[in-house]
Design a binder for these strands. Structure first.
Lengths: 254, 254
DNA sequence: GTAGACGTTTGATCTACGTCAAAGCATCGA
DNA sequence: TCGATGCTTTGACGTAGATCAAACGTCTAC
Protein backbone atom coordinates (compact mmCIF):
# COMPACT_ATOMS: atom_id res chain seq x y z
CA UNK A 1 0.00 0.00 0.00
CA UNK A 2 1.60 3.26 -1.11
CA UNK A 3 0.66 6.89 -1.44
CA UNK A 4 1.43 9.37 -4.15
CA UNK A 5 3.83 12.13 -3.28
CA UNK A 6 1.01 14.61 -3.18
CA UNK A 7 -0.49 13.12 -0.07
CA UNK A 8 2.40 11.32 1.51
CA UNK A 9 1.97 13.36 4.66
CA UNK A 10 -1.47 11.95 5.20
CA UNK A 11 -2.36 9.32 7.73
CA UNK A 12 -3.76 6.05 6.52
CA UNK A 13 -7.23 5.29 7.69
CA UNK A 14 -8.12 1.99 6.18
CA UNK A 15 -7.54 0.75 2.70
CA UNK A 16 -8.50 -2.86 3.30
CA UNK A 17 -10.64 -4.64 0.76
CA UNK A 18 -14.00 -4.75 2.51
CA UNK A 19 -13.83 -1.21 3.72
CA UNK A 20 -16.84 0.17 1.89
CA UNK A 21 -19.10 -2.45 3.46
CA UNK A 22 -19.84 -0.57 6.64
CA UNK A 23 -19.43 2.94 5.29
CA UNK A 24 -22.33 5.27 5.96
CA UNK A 25 -21.74 7.15 2.74
CA UNK A 26 -22.01 4.09 0.55
CA UNK A 27 -25.23 5.11 -1.15
CA UNK A 28 -24.01 8.36 -2.59
CA UNK A 29 -20.41 7.33 -2.99
CA UNK A 30 -18.89 6.11 -6.20
CA UNK A 31 -16.65 3.73 -4.29
CA UNK A 32 -19.54 1.72 -2.94
CA UNK A 33 -19.15 -0.26 -6.10
CA UNK A 34 -16.04 -1.72 -4.65
CA UNK A 35 -17.99 -3.57 -2.01
CA UNK A 36 -20.40 -4.73 -4.67
CA UNK A 37 -17.48 -6.30 -6.43
CA UNK A 38 -18.28 -4.38 -9.58
CA UNK A 39 -14.95 -2.67 -9.60
CA UNK A 40 -11.94 -2.82 -7.34
CA UNK A 41 -9.73 0.19 -7.12
CA UNK A 42 -6.42 -1.33 -6.15
CA UNK A 43 -5.04 1.72 -4.43
CA UNK A 44 -8.17 3.38 -3.20
CA UNK A 45 -7.30 4.50 0.27
CA UNK A 46 -8.16 6.91 2.99
CA UNK A 47 -6.70 10.01 4.47
CA UNK A 48 -7.47 12.12 7.48
CA UNK A 49 -7.32 15.89 7.16
CA UNK A 50 -6.94 18.18 10.13
CA UNK A 51 -8.91 21.35 10.66
CA UNK A 52 -7.39 24.04 8.47
CA UNK A 53 -5.30 21.58 6.46
CA UNK A 54 -5.67 21.65 2.69
CA UNK A 55 -6.83 18.61 0.79
CA UNK A 56 -5.58 20.18 -2.41
CA UNK A 57 -4.80 23.62 -3.77
CA UNK A 58 -5.63 25.38 -7.01
CA UNK A 59 -3.04 24.67 -9.65
CA UNK A 60 -1.95 21.31 -8.29
CA UNK A 61 -2.09 18.31 -10.58
CA UNK A 62 -5.08 16.07 -10.12
CA UNK A 63 -4.66 12.42 -9.39
CA UNK A 64 -7.90 11.53 -7.76
CA UNK A 65 -11.36 12.56 -6.71
CA UNK A 66 -12.24 12.47 -3.04
CA UNK A 67 -15.24 11.19 -1.17
CA UNK A 68 -15.87 12.80 2.18
CA UNK A 69 -16.47 10.18 4.88
CA UNK A 70 -16.72 12.44 7.91
CA UNK A 71 -16.15 16.06 8.87
CA UNK A 72 -16.65 19.07 6.63
CA UNK A 73 -14.70 20.58 3.76
CA UNK A 74 -15.01 23.82 1.86
CA UNK A 75 -13.69 24.64 -1.60
CA UNK A 76 -12.76 28.20 -2.51
CA UNK A 77 -10.91 30.43 -4.91
CA UNK A 78 -9.03 33.60 -4.14
CA UNK A 79 -9.57 36.66 -6.34
CA UNK A 80 -6.72 38.90 -7.41
CA UNK A 81 -7.98 41.38 -4.83
CA UNK A 82 -7.24 38.76 -2.21
CA UNK A 83 -10.73 38.07 -1.00
CA UNK A 84 -12.00 34.55 -0.99
CA UNK A 85 -15.05 33.12 -2.66
CA UNK A 86 -16.38 29.85 -1.32
CA UNK A 87 -17.70 27.56 -4.03
CA UNK A 88 -19.06 24.76 -1.92
CA UNK A 89 -19.42 23.19 1.50
CA UNK A 90 -19.18 19.43 1.52
CA UNK A 91 -20.76 16.97 3.92
CA UNK A 92 -20.12 13.23 4.39
CA UNK A 93 -20.99 11.31 1.25
CA UNK A 94 -20.16 14.14 -1.12
CA UNK A 95 -17.73 13.63 -3.96
CA UNK A 96 -15.17 16.41 -4.35
CA UNK A 97 -13.33 17.03 -7.58
CA UNK A 98 -15.79 16.45 -10.40
CA UNK A 99 -15.07 19.91 -11.72
CA UNK A 100 -11.50 19.07 -12.50
CA UNK A 101 -11.91 15.65 -14.05
CA UNK A 102 -9.94 15.69 -17.25
CA UNK A 103 -8.88 19.29 -16.65
CA UNK A 104 -5.45 18.19 -15.49
CA UNK A 105 -5.18 20.46 -12.50
CA UNK A 106 -7.35 21.75 -9.71
CA UNK A 107 -9.16 25.01 -10.27
CA UNK A 108 -9.82 25.73 -6.59
CA UNK A 109 -8.63 25.01 -3.09
CA UNK A 110 -10.12 22.53 -0.65
CA UNK A 111 -9.64 22.83 3.08
CA UNK A 112 -11.08 21.04 6.11
CA UNK A 113 -13.38 23.10 8.34
CA UNK A 114 -13.24 20.44 11.04
CA UNK A 115 -11.21 17.22 11.22
CA UNK A 116 -12.25 15.14 8.24
CA UNK A 117 -11.72 11.76 6.66
CA UNK A 118 -11.74 11.25 2.93
CA UNK A 119 -11.48 8.37 0.50
CA UNK A 120 -9.15 8.76 -2.43
CA UNK A 121 -10.36 7.42 -5.77
CA UNK A 122 -7.59 7.52 -8.37
CA UNK A 123 -8.82 9.21 -11.50
CA UNK A 124 -7.13 6.92 -13.93
CA UNK A 125 -8.60 3.73 -12.58
CA UNK A 126 -11.95 5.42 -12.09
CA UNK A 127 -12.18 6.38 -15.75
CA UNK A 128 -10.83 3.06 -16.92
CA UNK A 129 -13.31 1.17 -14.81
CA UNK A 130 -16.15 3.04 -16.45
CA UNK A 131 -15.45 1.11 -19.60
CA UNK A 132 -16.09 -2.11 -17.71
CA UNK A 133 -19.02 -1.06 -15.57
CA UNK A 134 -22.03 0.70 -17.01
CA UNK A 135 -23.27 1.15 -13.47
CA UNK A 136 -20.15 3.02 -12.46
CA UNK A 137 -20.31 5.16 -15.59
CA UNK A 138 -23.88 6.08 -14.82
CA UNK A 139 -23.01 6.94 -11.25
CA UNK A 140 -20.17 9.12 -12.44
CA UNK A 141 -22.26 10.93 -15.03
CA UNK A 142 -25.06 11.33 -12.52
CA UNK A 143 -22.66 12.79 -9.99
CA UNK A 144 -21.26 15.28 -12.47
CA UNK A 145 -24.75 16.17 -13.64
CA UNK A 146 -25.76 16.84 -10.04
CA UNK A 147 -22.73 19.06 -9.58
CA UNK A 148 -23.82 21.05 -12.62
CA UNK A 149 -27.31 21.37 -11.21
CA UNK A 150 -25.97 22.37 -7.81
CA UNK A 151 -24.07 25.20 -9.47
CA UNK A 152 -27.13 26.25 -11.46
CA UNK A 153 -28.95 26.37 -8.14
CA UNK A 154 -26.26 28.65 -6.74
CA UNK A 155 -26.71 30.95 -9.71
CA UNK A 156 -30.40 31.17 -8.95
CA UNK A 157 -29.49 31.90 -5.34
CA UNK A 158 -27.66 35.06 -6.44
CA UNK A 159 -30.98 36.58 -7.45
CA UNK A 160 -32.48 36.28 -4.00
CA UNK A 161 -32.45 38.80 -1.19
CA UNK A 162 -30.12 38.31 1.75
CA UNK A 163 -32.97 36.90 3.83
CA UNK A 164 -33.99 34.45 1.14
CA UNK A 165 -30.43 33.26 0.66
CA UNK A 166 -29.94 32.63 4.35
CA UNK A 167 -33.25 30.80 4.63
CA UNK A 168 -32.44 28.66 1.60
CA UNK A 169 -28.97 28.00 2.91
CA UNK A 170 -30.32 26.79 6.24
CA UNK A 171 -32.86 24.54 4.55
CA UNK A 172 -30.23 23.10 2.21
CA UNK A 173 -27.88 22.41 5.08
CA UNK A 174 -30.67 20.71 6.99
CA UNK A 175 -31.50 18.54 4.02
CA UNK A 176 -27.90 17.52 3.50
CA UNK A 177 -27.28 16.79 7.14
CA UNK A 178 -30.46 14.78 7.27
CA UNK A 179 -29.03 12.49 4.62
CA UNK A 180 -26.54 10.95 7.01
CA UNK A 181 -27.94 11.74 10.44
CA UNK A 182 -31.44 10.89 11.59
CA UNK A 183 -33.50 12.92 9.16
CA UNK A 184 -36.82 13.91 10.65
CA UNK A 185 -37.55 15.54 13.99
CA UNK A 186 -34.46 17.38 15.10
CA UNK A 187 -33.53 19.97 12.48
CA UNK A 188 -30.63 21.06 14.63
CA UNK A 189 -27.88 22.26 12.36
CA UNK A 190 -24.29 21.84 13.39
CA UNK A 191 -22.68 24.51 11.26
CA UNK A 192 -19.00 23.90 10.79
CA UNK A 193 -18.48 27.29 9.16
CA UNK A 194 -18.32 30.82 10.52
CA UNK A 195 -20.67 33.69 9.66
CA UNK A 196 -17.94 35.07 7.49
CA UNK A 197 -17.68 31.84 5.56
CA UNK A 198 -21.41 31.68 5.05
CA UNK A 199 -21.15 35.20 3.71
CA UNK A 200 -18.30 34.38 1.36
CA UNK A 201 -20.40 31.49 0.09
CA UNK A 202 -23.65 33.41 -0.35
CA UNK A 203 -21.98 36.62 -1.44
CA UNK A 204 -23.06 38.59 1.61
CA UNK A 205 -21.08 40.61 4.13
CA UNK A 206 -20.47 38.97 7.49
CA UNK A 207 -22.55 41.69 9.12
CA UNK A 208 -25.47 40.99 6.80
CA UNK A 209 -25.37 37.29 7.67
CA UNK A 210 -25.35 38.11 11.34
CA UNK A 211 -28.14 40.68 11.10
CA UNK A 212 -30.30 38.36 9.03
CA UNK A 213 -29.86 35.46 11.43
CA UNK A 214 -30.84 37.63 14.38
CA UNK A 215 -33.88 38.83 12.49
CA UNK A 216 -34.93 35.23 11.81
CA UNK A 217 -34.29 34.44 15.45
CA UNK A 218 -36.38 37.34 16.69
CA UNK A 219 -39.16 36.27 14.35
CA UNK A 220 -39.10 32.90 16.10
CA UNK A 221 -38.16 30.91 13.01
CA UNK A 222 -34.81 29.70 14.31
CA UNK A 223 -33.03 29.35 17.58
CA UNK A 224 -29.34 30.13 17.88
CA UNK A 225 -27.16 28.68 20.58
CA UNK A 226 -23.47 28.10 20.66
CA UNK A 227 -22.40 25.80 17.88
CA UNK A 228 -25.83 25.13 16.47
CA UNK A 229 -28.95 26.51 14.84
CA UNK A 230 -32.32 24.90 15.37
CA UNK A 231 -34.91 25.33 12.66
CA UNK A 232 -38.09 25.97 14.59
CA UNK A 233 -40.26 26.66 11.57
CA UNK A 234 -38.93 25.22 8.31
CA UNK A 235 -42.24 25.89 6.59
CA UNK A 236 -41.94 29.60 7.23
CA UNK A 237 -38.37 29.50 5.96
CA UNK A 238 -39.65 27.91 2.79
CA UNK A 239 -42.24 30.63 2.43
CA UNK A 240 -39.52 33.25 2.75
CA UNK A 241 -37.55 31.66 -0.07
CA UNK A 242 -40.61 31.51 -2.30
CA UNK A 243 -42.03 34.90 -1.46
CA UNK A 244 -41.66 37.99 -3.58
CA UNK A 245 -38.96 40.15 -2.04
CA UNK A 246 -41.28 42.54 -0.21
CA UNK A 247 -40.12 42.43 3.40
CA UNK A 248 -40.50 38.81 4.19
CA UNK A 249 -40.17 38.01 7.87
CA UNK A 250 -42.89 40.42 8.93
CA UNK A 251 -45.33 39.02 6.41
CA UNK A 252 -44.34 35.40 6.75
CA UNK A 253 -43.92 34.90 10.45
CA UNK A 254 -47.55 35.63 11.17
CA UNK B 1 -34.12 7.72 -40.87
CA UNK B 2 -36.65 8.51 -38.17
CA UNK B 3 -37.20 11.07 -35.48
CA UNK B 4 -38.46 10.66 -31.97
CA UNK B 5 -41.85 12.09 -31.20
CA UNK B 6 -40.26 14.90 -29.27
CA UNK B 7 -38.84 16.51 -32.36
CA UNK B 8 -41.02 15.21 -35.13
CA UNK B 9 -41.89 18.77 -36.12
CA UNK B 10 -38.29 19.47 -36.96
CA UNK B 11 -36.84 19.62 -40.41
CA UNK B 12 -34.15 17.18 -41.37
CA UNK B 13 -30.84 18.74 -42.22
CA UNK B 14 -28.57 15.92 -43.01
CA UNK B 15 -28.07 12.65 -41.26
CA UNK B 16 -25.92 10.97 -43.83
CA UNK B 17 -22.93 8.99 -42.70
CA UNK B 18 -20.08 11.27 -43.62
CA UNK B 19 -21.79 14.38 -42.36
CA UNK B 20 -19.33 15.34 -39.67
CA UNK B 21 -16.49 15.46 -42.18
CA UNK B 22 -17.06 19.01 -43.33
CA UNK B 23 -18.54 20.36 -40.12
CA UNK B 24 -16.88 23.45 -38.76
CA UNK B 25 -17.67 22.44 -35.21
CA UNK B 26 -15.92 19.13 -35.44
CA UNK B 27 -13.13 19.99 -33.03
CA UNK B 28 -15.28 20.78 -30.05
CA UNK B 29 -18.12 18.44 -30.90
CA UNK B 30 -18.57 15.01 -29.47
CA UNK B 31 -19.94 13.74 -32.73
CA UNK B 32 -16.77 14.40 -34.62
CA UNK B 33 -15.86 10.94 -33.55
CA UNK B 34 -18.32 9.66 -36.04
CA UNK B 35 -16.19 10.87 -38.90
CA UNK B 36 -13.14 9.36 -37.27
CA UNK B 37 -14.94 6.06 -37.35
CA UNK B 38 -14.49 5.67 -33.62
CA UNK B 39 -18.17 5.52 -33.00
CA UNK B 40 -21.19 5.68 -35.25
CA UNK B 41 -24.43 6.95 -33.84
CA UNK B 42 -26.97 5.25 -36.02
CA UNK B 43 -29.70 7.84 -35.59
CA UNK B 44 -27.68 10.95 -35.03
CA UNK B 45 -29.42 13.56 -37.08
CA UNK B 46 -29.99 17.22 -37.51
CA UNK B 47 -32.72 19.69 -36.87
CA UNK B 48 -33.25 23.30 -37.71
CA UNK B 49 -34.81 25.58 -35.13
CA UNK B 50 -36.46 28.86 -36.00
CA UNK B 51 -35.97 32.08 -34.12
CA UNK B 52 -38.05 31.92 -30.95
CA UNK B 53 -38.71 28.21 -31.28
CA UNK B 54 -37.88 25.99 -28.32
CA UNK B 55 -35.39 23.19 -28.63
CA UNK B 56 -36.66 21.75 -25.37
CA UNK B 57 -38.49 22.90 -22.28
CA UNK B 58 -37.94 22.37 -18.59
CA UNK B 59 -39.64 19.22 -17.39
CA UNK B 60 -39.55 17.40 -20.71
CA UNK B 61 -37.95 13.99 -20.85
CA UNK B 62 -34.43 13.91 -22.17
CA UNK B 63 -33.52 11.76 -25.10
CA UNK B 64 -30.44 13.43 -26.44
CA UNK B 65 -27.85 16.11 -26.08
CA UNK B 66 -27.55 18.71 -28.81
CA UNK B 67 -24.59 20.18 -30.60
CA UNK B 68 -25.12 23.61 -32.04
CA UNK B 69 -23.94 23.80 -35.66
CA UNK B 70 -25.02 27.34 -36.50
CA UNK B 71 -27.08 30.13 -35.03
CA UNK B 72 -27.45 30.96 -31.35
CA UNK B 73 -29.39 29.42 -28.50
CA UNK B 74 -30.08 30.50 -24.95
CA UNK B 75 -31.08 28.36 -22.00
CA UNK B 76 -33.16 29.84 -19.19
CA UNK B 77 -35.35 29.13 -16.22
CA UNK B 78 -38.41 31.02 -15.08
CA UNK B 79 -38.75 31.93 -11.41
CA UNK B 80 -42.06 31.67 -9.59
CA UNK B 81 -42.23 35.45 -9.80
CA UNK B 82 -42.30 35.08 -13.56
CA UNK B 83 -39.02 36.68 -14.44
CA UNK B 84 -36.53 34.79 -16.46
CA UNK B 85 -32.95 33.93 -15.66
CA UNK B 86 -30.67 33.09 -18.54
CA UNK B 87 -28.20 30.35 -17.72
CA UNK B 88 -26.20 30.30 -20.91
CA UNK B 89 -25.77 31.55 -24.44
CA UNK B 90 -24.53 28.92 -26.88
CA UNK B 91 -22.49 29.39 -30.03
CA UNK B 92 -21.73 26.94 -32.83
CA UNK B 93 -19.74 23.99 -31.54
CA UNK B 94 -21.24 24.08 -28.05
CA UNK B 95 -22.85 21.01 -26.58
CA UNK B 96 -26.18 21.65 -24.89
CA UNK B 97 -27.63 19.31 -22.33
CA UNK B 98 -24.77 18.07 -20.18
CA UNK B 99 -26.55 19.30 -17.09
CA UNK B 100 -29.38 16.89 -17.53
CA UNK B 101 -27.48 13.77 -18.46
CA UNK B 102 -28.82 11.01 -16.27
CA UNK B 103 -31.25 13.41 -14.62
CA UNK B 104 -34.12 12.09 -16.71
CA UNK B 105 -35.68 15.41 -17.57
CA UNK B 106 -34.60 18.87 -18.57
CA UNK B 107 -34.10 21.40 -15.81
CA UNK B 108 -34.32 24.44 -18.06
CA UNK B 109 -35.63 25.74 -21.37
CA UNK B 110 -33.67 26.17 -24.58
CA UNK B 111 -34.78 28.56 -27.30
CA UNK B 112 -33.21 29.83 -30.51
CA UNK B 113 -32.23 33.50 -30.60
CA UNK B 114 -31.73 33.37 -34.36
CA UNK B 115 -32.37 30.54 -36.80
CA UNK B 116 -30.20 27.64 -35.69
CA UNK B 117 -29.16 24.16 -36.72
CA UNK B 118 -28.39 21.47 -34.20
CA UNK B 119 -27.17 17.91 -34.21
CA UNK B 120 -29.01 15.43 -32.05
CA UNK B 121 -26.93 12.87 -30.20
CA UNK B 122 -29.11 10.22 -28.56
CA UNK B 123 -28.17 9.85 -24.93
CA UNK B 124 -28.48 6.12 -24.80
CA UNK B 125 -26.11 5.41 -27.62
CA UNK B 126 -23.77 8.13 -26.41
CA UNK B 127 -23.40 6.54 -23.02
CA UNK B 128 -23.18 3.07 -24.45
CA UNK B 129 -20.51 4.10 -26.88
CA UNK B 130 -18.38 5.36 -24.03
CA UNK B 131 -17.79 1.78 -23.03
CA UNK B 132 -16.24 1.12 -26.44
CA UNK B 133 -14.32 4.31 -26.92
CA UNK B 134 -12.02 5.71 -24.26
CA UNK B 135 -11.60 8.76 -26.47
CA UNK B 136 -15.32 9.45 -26.48
CA UNK B 137 -15.54 8.92 -22.73
CA UNK B 138 -12.75 11.42 -22.21
CA UNK B 139 -14.41 13.94 -24.49
CA UNK B 140 -17.66 13.54 -22.63
CA UNK B 141 -16.06 13.91 -19.20
CA UNK B 142 -14.03 16.85 -20.44
CA UNK B 143 -17.15 18.51 -21.80
CA UNK B 144 -19.01 18.08 -18.55
CA UNK B 145 -16.00 19.27 -16.58
CA UNK B 146 -15.85 22.39 -18.74
CA UNK B 147 -19.53 23.03 -18.14
CA UNK B 148 -18.86 22.86 -14.40
CA UNK B 149 -16.01 25.29 -14.78
CA UNK B 150 -18.12 27.59 -16.93
CA UNK B 151 -20.69 27.74 -14.15
CA UNK B 152 -18.01 28.37 -11.54
CA UNK B 153 -16.87 31.23 -13.73
CA UNK B 154 -20.40 32.63 -13.75
CA UNK B 155 -20.44 32.48 -9.96
CA UNK B 156 -17.27 34.52 -9.89
CA UNK B 157 -18.88 36.94 -12.32
CA UNK B 158 -21.60 37.68 -9.78
CA UNK B 159 -19.02 39.34 -7.56
CA UNK B 160 -18.03 41.88 -10.16
CA UNK B 161 -19.41 45.37 -10.72
CA UNK B 162 -21.77 46.00 -13.60
CA UNK B 163 -18.96 47.44 -15.68
CA UNK B 164 -16.69 44.48 -15.03
CA UNK B 165 -19.45 42.02 -15.91
CA UNK B 166 -20.18 43.73 -19.19
CA UNK B 167 -16.49 43.94 -20.08
CA UNK B 168 -15.97 40.28 -19.25
CA UNK B 169 -19.09 39.33 -21.15
CA UNK B 170 -17.88 41.13 -24.26
CA UNK B 171 -14.46 39.51 -24.04
CA UNK B 172 -15.96 36.07 -23.54
CA UNK B 173 -18.27 36.52 -26.49
CA UNK B 174 -15.35 37.65 -28.64
CA UNK B 175 -13.33 34.61 -27.60
CA UNK B 176 -16.16 32.23 -28.38
CA UNK B 177 -16.99 33.79 -31.71
CA UNK B 178 -13.31 33.73 -32.59
CA UNK B 179 -13.39 29.98 -32.24
CA UNK B 180 -15.38 29.49 -35.43
CA UNK B 181 -14.94 32.74 -37.33
CA UNK B 182 -11.59 34.21 -38.25
CA UNK B 183 -10.14 34.91 -34.85
CA UNK B 184 -7.66 37.78 -34.95
CA UNK B 185 -8.10 41.28 -36.36
CA UNK B 186 -11.79 42.02 -36.39
CA UNK B 187 -13.22 41.71 -32.90
CA UNK B 188 -16.62 42.68 -34.24
CA UNK B 189 -19.26 41.01 -32.14
CA UNK B 190 -22.53 39.99 -33.70
CA UNK B 191 -24.69 39.85 -30.60
CA UNK B 192 -27.75 37.72 -31.17
CA UNK B 193 -29.27 38.79 -27.87
CA UNK B 194 -30.98 41.96 -26.69
CA UNK B 195 -29.80 44.27 -23.89
CA UNK B 196 -32.52 42.78 -21.76
CA UNK B 197 -31.24 39.28 -22.36
CA UNK B 198 -27.69 40.28 -21.53
CA UNK B 199 -29.08 41.71 -18.32
CA UNK B 200 -31.02 38.58 -17.45
CA UNK B 201 -27.83 36.62 -18.01
CA UNK B 202 -25.53 38.89 -16.01
CA UNK B 203 -28.13 39.74 -13.38
CA UNK B 204 -28.35 43.40 -14.32
CA UNK B 205 -31.29 45.59 -15.26
CA UNK B 206 -31.70 46.38 -18.94
CA UNK B 207 -31.07 50.03 -18.15
CA UNK B 208 -27.80 49.22 -16.42
CA UNK B 209 -26.61 47.22 -19.42
CA UNK B 210 -27.46 50.09 -21.72
CA UNK B 211 -25.87 52.74 -19.51
CA UNK B 212 -22.70 50.71 -19.09
CA UNK B 213 -22.35 50.09 -22.80
CA UNK B 214 -22.71 53.79 -23.55
CA UNK B 215 -20.11 54.56 -20.92
CA UNK B 216 -17.69 52.11 -22.53
CA UNK B 217 -18.50 53.62 -25.89
CA UNK B 218 -17.87 57.17 -24.70
CA UNK B 219 -14.58 56.04 -23.20
CA UNK B 220 -13.61 54.84 -26.66
CA UNK B 221 -13.27 51.19 -25.70
CA UNK B 222 -16.04 49.90 -27.92
CA UNK B 223 -18.02 51.06 -30.91
CA UNK B 224 -21.72 50.35 -31.18
CA UNK B 225 -23.54 50.26 -34.48
CA UNK B 226 -26.70 48.52 -35.39
CA UNK B 227 -26.40 44.78 -34.90
CA UNK B 228 -22.82 44.75 -33.75
CA UNK B 229 -20.27 45.85 -31.19
CA UNK B 230 -16.66 46.37 -32.14
CA UNK B 231 -14.05 45.95 -29.42
CA UNK B 232 -11.66 48.83 -30.04
CA UNK B 233 -9.52 48.21 -27.00
CA UNK B 234 -9.71 44.66 -25.61
CA UNK B 235 -6.68 45.29 -23.40
CA UNK B 236 -8.47 48.09 -21.59
CA UNK B 237 -11.51 45.86 -21.20
CA UNK B 238 -9.27 43.27 -19.60
CA UNK B 239 -7.91 45.86 -17.24
CA UNK B 240 -11.42 46.80 -16.22
CA UNK B 241 -12.20 43.20 -15.35
CA UNK B 242 -9.05 42.85 -13.30
CA UNK B 243 -9.17 46.21 -11.59
CA UNK B 244 -10.39 46.80 -8.08
CA UNK B 245 -13.90 48.20 -8.22
CA UNK B 246 -13.01 51.87 -7.78
CA UNK B 247 -14.53 53.65 -10.76
CA UNK B 248 -12.91 51.85 -13.61
CA UNK B 249 -13.43 53.47 -16.97
CA UNK B 250 -12.01 56.81 -15.89
CA UNK B 251 -8.89 55.21 -14.48
CA UNK B 252 -8.44 52.61 -17.19
CA UNK B 253 -9.19 54.45 -20.37
CA UNK B 254 -6.27 56.78 -19.97
C1' DG C 1 -46.05 55.84 -46.36
C1' DT C 2 -47.61 55.03 -41.39
C1' DA C 3 -49.13 52.49 -37.34
C1' DG C 4 -47.81 49.44 -34.02
C1' DA C 5 -44.69 46.75 -31.49
C1' DC C 6 -40.17 46.34 -29.52
C1' DG C 7 -35.94 47.51 -28.19
C1' DT C 8 -32.86 51.23 -26.54
C1' DT C 9 -31.49 55.25 -24.20
C1' DT C 10 -31.51 58.77 -20.63
C1' DG C 11 -33.00 60.98 -16.34
C1' DA C 12 -34.66 61.07 -11.40
C1' DT C 13 -35.29 58.67 -7.35
C1' DC C 14 -35.16 54.82 -3.99
C1' DT C 15 -33.20 51.02 -1.33
C1' DA C 16 -30.83 46.78 0.05
C1' DC C 17 -26.72 45.81 1.26
C1' DG C 18 -21.74 47.00 1.83
C1' DT C 19 -18.42 49.43 4.60
C1' DC C 20 -16.58 51.50 8.66
C1' DA C 21 -16.39 51.47 13.54
C1' DA C 22 -16.71 49.82 18.06
C1' DA C 23 -18.39 47.02 21.56
C1' DG C 24 -19.62 42.18 23.28
C1' DC C 25 -18.27 37.25 24.02
C1' DA C 26 -16.09 32.72 23.54
C1' DT C 27 -12.04 29.95 23.57
C1' DC C 28 -7.41 28.90 24.61
C1' DG C 29 -2.72 28.98 26.39
C1' DA C 30 0.31 30.44 29.98
C1' DT D 1 -7.00 34.20 36.27
C1' DC D 2 -5.94 36.92 32.68
C1' DG D 3 -4.83 38.53 28.41
C1' DA D 4 -4.88 37.63 23.62
C1' DT D 5 -7.18 36.34 19.68
C1' DG D 6 -10.83 35.68 16.70
C1' DC D 7 -15.79 35.55 15.94
C1' DT D 8 -20.20 37.91 16.45
C1' DT D 9 -23.28 41.55 17.07
C1' DT D 10 -25.10 46.21 16.62
C1' DG D 11 -25.18 50.98 14.90
C1' DA D 12 -24.41 54.84 11.50
C1' DC D 13 -23.69 55.96 6.93
C1' DG D 14 -22.68 55.66 1.87
C1' DT D 15 -23.39 53.81 -2.75
C1' DA D 16 -24.12 50.76 -6.79
C1' DG D 17 -27.53 49.48 -9.15
C1' DA D 18 -32.80 48.71 -9.22
C1' DT D 19 -37.02 50.89 -10.33
C1' DC D 20 -40.11 54.21 -12.34
C1' DA D 21 -41.00 57.10 -16.19
C1' DA D 22 -40.74 58.90 -20.63
C1' DA D 23 -38.66 59.88 -25.04
C1' DC D 24 -36.42 57.96 -28.99
C1' DG D 25 -34.94 54.70 -32.67
C1' DT D 26 -35.83 50.75 -35.79
C1' DC D 27 -38.27 47.10 -37.92
C1' DT D 28 -42.33 44.82 -39.85
C1' DA D 29 -46.97 44.60 -41.74
C1' DC D 30 -50.29 46.55 -44.32
Amino acid sequence: MTFTAAIESAAVIDAAAGRCAGCSTRESCLGGLKAAGVCGFSDSSGRSVERGQHLFRAGEAIHCVFVLRSGAIKTYVTAASGDEQILGFYSPGDVIGYDSISAGKHSRNAVALVPAEVCRIPLESLVQSCAQSADLLNRLLAGMGQEIQRLQGMLKMERLTAEQRIALFLLNQARRQGRTEGSAGGYVLQLAMTRGEIGRFLDLATETVSRTLTRLKEAGLIQIDRSGIRLLNPTALHRIVQSQPVNSVERIAA
